[in-house]
Structure formats: structure tokens, C-alpha cells
């Protein structure tokens, strides 16, 4: 029997169609697009005086926005990817098909990351086009802007796989919801607060600059911020972070690890799960 199967594309396409059907894609595009436009125009006021490229200013405001919003969107897409199918009973049937378990997660990942890609591309891309148009065709800073878009996708992918890991760990969707919210709060909100508090209490005794940077890099949301704020000189000057020398590679590596490691852990955990 020589049947051609396109397992991962089939699984990914289903997620993508689901995203279109339940208006996830539309909602995310509108959300990202609207907020990006509003922030960019609010933030563009000083750019006129400082003679800084509008796109670079936007990178600063959009990085701050994406740092909170992208992880939240990704976790919402991913948290019930596995546990939801177990709870609905659809996983039982799916696992009797010629589909490997890692392919199920990979298929969902491809589908969900395409949704993120579309949202970022259309939402932030429109803003970019509008900014160039309203600034008399000034395209300076486009590299920084595109790097911000690409890194936003990486950040989204990292939180997607974190979402799958959560989904593979629990037996109830409600628990997964709670864990997803807790993870978001921990990594995106409390981590920075904790780091700042530690820095203040420490008064420079134990936490060296190197350790501080490492701790920042250990968190995907901070790695994303470092990538956008310090990696590109113009933006770094803008946010006053020019003395921080992290480069692009380390934050990039951190985000990639945050994609790969949770993905692998989710696969290992899912392999062990019985129906």
C-alpha cells in the first residue's frame, strides 16, 4: 500500500482553518494593527523634534506592546492544543491514525505560528506602510522594524511551545488555563519586577552586570526586548541602552532555545500520555 500522506501540512491546515473560522486570525490582526497604529502615532509626536526615524520610534513602542501581547496571544492559541483534544475526545481518534505524536505537536505549531505570522505581518506591516506613507516615504529604520517583526514571531513561537508544554502536563483544560495565565504573569510581568527588586536590594554586591544580562536573556520576553532595544544601534541610542553590549546573537539564541526546549519537553511528555 503506497499512500501519500502529508501529515504535518494536514494538521497545520486544520489549525489555520480553525483560526479563520473562529475569527482568531481576524481578531489578532485587528488587535495588533490597531494598537500598533495608535502607539506609533502617539509615539511619533517627539520624532519630529528629535529627527529620529518614525519606524525606529515605533520599534520602541511596539516592542513594549508586543512583549506583553504576543506571549498572551500565543499562550491563548496553544494552551489547550493537547488537553483540549483529550477533553473533547477527539485525540482518541486522532491517535489511531497513522500520525506520530511529535507530528501532532509539530502540525499544530506550524498552523499556530502561521496564524501569528499573518497577524504580525498584516497588523504590524500595515502600520509600517502607514508610517512610511505619512512620513513622506521615509523608509529609514526599516531594518529595525522588520527585525522587530521577525523577533515578534520568534517570541510568539516560544510562547506557543510553552503553551504546548502546559497542555501536555495537565489533564484538565481549566488547569491549563490557570497555568497559562500564571506563566504569562511570571515570565512577562513578575520576572522583571523580581529582577529589579533583586537589583535594588543587592546594591551591586552579588548581581554583576554579566549576571543581570544572563538573567535577562534567560527569559524569552526579556531576550526579545534586549534584541530590539540593544541589538540595533539606532534603537539602542533612542532608549538610552547604547552601553549595553549584548548583540543580536545571544537574545536570538535564547528565543530559539525557548522554542526548541519546551517543544521537545512537550513531545516527551505527550509520548508518555495514555488515552
Amino acid at each position: 500500500m503506497n499512500r501519500r500522506r502529508h501529515t504535518i501540512p494536514t494538521l497545520a491546515l486544520k489549525e489555520l482553518r480553525d483560526g479563520i473560522r473562529n475569527r482568531w486570525i481576524a481578531a489578532t490582526i485587528i488587535l495588533l494593527g490597531t494598537l500598533a497604529l495608535v502607539l506609533s502615532f502617539l509615539g511619533s509626536a517627539p520624532s519630529g523634534e528629535l529627527k529620529v526615524a518614525a519606524l525606529e520610534v515605533s520599534v520602541v513602542s511596539l516592542t513594549s506592546l508586543s512583549m506583553y501581547l504576543i506571549p498572551l496571544i500565543a499562550l491563548m492559541l496553544a494552551f489547550d492544543a493537547l488537553v483540549g483534544e483529550f477533553e473533547n475526545g477527539t485525540m482518541l481518534l486522532l491517535l489511531t491514525y497513522p500520525v506520530r505524536r511529535w507530528q501532532i505537536i509539530a502540525g499544530k505549531f506550524v498552523g499556530h505560528s502561521t496564524i501569528m505570522l499573518l497577524a504580525i505581518l498584516i497588523g504590524y506591516g500595515t502600520t509600517m506602510a502607514v508610517l512610511i506613507f505619512t512620513n513622506d516615504g521615509d523608509t529609514s529604520g526599516w531594518q529595525a522594524y522588520l527585525a522587530m517583526m521577525a523577533s515578534s514571531l520568534l517570541l510568539g513561537c516560544a510562547f506557543l511551545t510553552v503553551g504546548y508544554l502546559i497542555s501536555s502536563l495537565v489533564r484538565e483544560r481549566s488547569v491549563a488555563t490557570g497555568l497559562a495565565v500564571a506563566t504569562w504573569l511570571l515570565l512577562v510581568v513578575f520576572y522583571d519586577l523580581g529582577l529589579l527588586s533583586a537589583l535594588m536590594l543587592d546594591e551591586g554586591k552579588y548581581i554583576s552586570e554579566g549576571l543581570f544580562t544572563t538573567l535577562m536573556l534567560a527569559n524569552p520576553a526579556d531576550a526579545y526586548r534586549l534584541f530590539n532595544f540593544t541589538g540595533i544601534t539606532e534603537v539602542a541610542n533612542l532608549v538610552g541602552a547604547s552601553e549595553i553590549k549584548v548583540g543580536l546573537a545571544a537574545p536570538l539564541l535564547s528565543m530559539l532555545l525557548w522554542i526548541v526546549v519546551p517543544f521537545l519537553l512537550a513531545v516527551i511528555r505527550f509520548q508518555k500520555r495514555e488515552v
Partner: peptide, 13 residues
């Protein structure tokens, strides 16, 4: 598994 067919007791779609 391509050679198998399965109808679970309470099938969910």
C-alpha cells in the same frame, strides 16, 4: 495505522 479503522464507543468530532 493506515490499515486500521476505529469507531470509538462515544465518538467525538
Amino acid at each position: 495505522r493506515g490499515m486500521l479503522g476505529y469507531l470509538p464507543e462515544s465518538v467525538s468530532f
